[in-house]
Design a protein around this nucleic acid. Structure first.
Lengths: 142, 142
DNA sequence: TTGCAAAATCTACAAATGTAAACTATAATC
DNA sequence: GATTATAGTTTACATTTGTAGATTTTGCAA
C-alpha cells in the first residue's frame, strides 16, 4: 500500500516553479526569486535544489562558478502525476463531483473552457450511467 | 511559505475511506477491512486511527470495550481541501490544462458530465480571455 | 473470582521533509 | 600573491509519516 512514485514536495514545488517559468536558472537567480517572497535562507534553497537533482526533477550544469538548473520533467507532467496520486485516494464514485467542484472554482480562459466543452461532449458518447464505488468494504458507498 | 492546514496523509486516506464508506465503524471492522487489502499490522492501523483523531478527522466513542469511529470531515470536503492544496502549487495559467487532462482521463457518469457541461456553459459567460501567470519571476510564463 | 483473549496505549525507529548553520573551495579583487 | 566575497558541500536537527513491537487494561468466559 506504499506509494513509491517520487513526488515533488510542498517546499520543492516553489523551487520547481522558478525553473519551469524561466526555462533555466542559475542558483543565484533561483535564490533571489524565492527570497523575494519568502524568508528561506540560501542554504535551505540549496538543499532543496540538491534534493530535486537527486530525485531526478532537475539537472544541473556548471557554468563558470555557478550551476544552472533545468527541469527534467515538464510542469504539466509533474502536475498530472500529483493529481493522479491525489485522485487515487478517492472513491472512484466521487471523482466526478470533485471535478465539478474544481472546475467551478478554477479561473480559466474561455479557450480552456471551450476545450473542456469539447472533451465532455466527446466523453458523453461513451460515458456509463454509473461508476461503481471502489472502496475497501466493497461497493459500500451507495 | 509553510503550509499549515492539517491534511490527510497517504496511509491515512485508506483508513478514512473505510469510515466514510461505512458511516461509522469499530476498530475491529476497520482493521479487518484494511487487512483484506494490505499487510498492515493491527498496531499500525491503531496508530493511524489515533493520529486521525488527534488531527480532528475522526471522533471515537467507546462502545463496550471497543471504539467506534466516525468522520468529522466529509469525504468531499477532505478531497476539496487536498485538491486546493495541490492546485495552489501550480501556476494559475496552467490550471485549465490540468483540469482538461483530468476530466479527460477520469471515468464519470453521464450525469456528472451533464452537470459539468452546465457549469462550464455558465462559467463561459464571465470567463476571461486569459489568465495571468502567477509565478514568482512575475508573469514569466508566456 | 480468576485467567485470558482482545482491545487500547505507549514506545520505537527509520525515512522523508522543512529548515539552516558550518565548513570548504574558488573566482575575483586589491 | 594575499584577501575576500561567493558558490558549493557537509552536517544537523526537529517534525511528520510509515510501520510496528511491547506493555497495560479490561470485558467476559470458565
Amino acid at each position: 500500500m506504499k506509494n513509491n512514485i517520487e513526488l515533488i514536495t510542498g517546499a520543492e514545488w516553489n523551487v520547481m516553479r522558478i525553473v519551469w517559468s524561466l526555462g533555466s536558472a542559475s542558483t543565484r537567480t533561483i535564490i533571489e526569486n524565492l527570497q523575494a517572497a519568502s524568508d528561506w535562507k540560501d542554504s535551505t534553497i540549496k538543499t532543496l535544489l540538491a534534493r530535486l537533482v537527486k530525485k531526478g526533477f532537475l539537472t544541473s550544469e556548471k557554468d563558470g562558478r555557478q550551476f544552472v538548473y533545468r527541469a527534467l520533467v515538464p510542469e504539466q507532467t509533474a502536475m498530472n502525476q500529483s493529481a493522479d496520486e491525489l485522485f487515487s485516494h478517492l472513491c472512484k464514485m466521487k471523482s466526478g463531483k470533485t471535478l465539478i467542484e474544481l472546475v467551478q472554482k478554477t479561473e480559466m480562459t474561455k479557450n480552456d473552457l471551450a476545450t473542456l466543452q469539447k472533451v465532455i461532449t466527446e466523453k458523453m458518447k461513451t460515458a456509463p450511467d454509473e461508476v461503481d464505488c471502489n472502496c475497501l468494504p466493497s461497493g459500500s458507498c451507495e
